[in-house]
Simulated assay, not measured.
Amino acid sequence: MKRDLAKITGLAVFTLALTLSGCYYDKFEEEDPSDQVSFTADIQPIFNAYCTSCHPVLVANPDLSSGNSYSSITNGIYVVPNDIDASTLYQRLLGNPSIMPPSGSLSASEINSVKSWIEQGALDN
């Protein structure tokens, strides 16, 4: 009986010690605010430089002009927050099914900005 009580007590102490000490890998890493992609500062300038000569001038949807673009693309078709595979905008930048803009691919940095913005939830920030 004493041995069983000692085992149970030892196990309880061990479990408590594990619970209180935690694990390095259990700690949440805080996101560096400088890694946050801003729609206004990072994404809209890409649209202004490469897309607004056609959207909405020649092609009405999506309207990528300042003030209209966010609501025009965050409809679950062009951009699906947190899902680059389902986001038509991102897929078109990769050339799936055809490259946008038609004048040629954006830089890898610009494409990565769009990718990160979508992966970060496609916020209107």
Rank of each mutant, 00 (worst) to 15 (best):
L58N: 09
N75Q: 13
T74L: 15
L20C: 13
V114K: 01
V57T: 15
R3W: 10
G121C: 06
C51I: 05
A60S: 14
S107T: 15
E29A: 10
S72Y: 07
F39W: 14
G22C: 10
Y50N: 12
A60T: 15
I99C: 01
T52H: 03
N82I: 02
S103K: 07
D124R: 09
K7D: 02
S98I: 09
V80H: 03
I99N: 03
N96M: 03
L16G: 14
Y24L: 09
P62F: 09
P45L: 07
V114H: 00
E110G: 04
F39D: 02
P56Q: 02
T52E: 06
L18F: 15
Q120T: 07
L64W: 04
A86E: 09
S66Q: 14
N96D: 12
V79T: 09
T40E: 14
P45W: 06
D4G: 06
D42W: 09
A108D: 15
V57C: 01
S71V: 13
P102Q: 10
S69H: 05
P56K: 01
R92A: 08
N112F: 06
S69V: 03
I84K: 02
N68F: 09
I43E: 02
I8M: 13
T52F: 02
P62E: 04
K27H: 02
M100K: 04
G10F: 12
Y78Q: 12
S66F: 03
D85H: 07
Y90F: 15
G95E: 10
L64F: 08
Y25I: 07
V114L: 02
T88P: 01
I8S: 11
K27D: 04
T74Q: 05
R3Y: 09
G10T: 13
N82L: 11
I43A: 04
S53L: 03
P33M: 10
F39I: 11
L16S: 12
I73F: 09
K27F: 06
C23D: 14
V59D: 01
V80R: 04
N112V: 03
V114N: 00
I8D: 11
V59S: 08
A12E: 05
L106V: 10
K27T: 06
M1E: 11
T19N: 05
L18A: 14
A6C: 06
T9Y: 08
F47P: 07
Q44W: 09
Y70N: 08
E30V: 14
I73T: 12
T19V: 14
S66T: 15
S103I: 13
E31K: 15
E119N: 11
N48A: 13
T40L: 06
P101K: 04
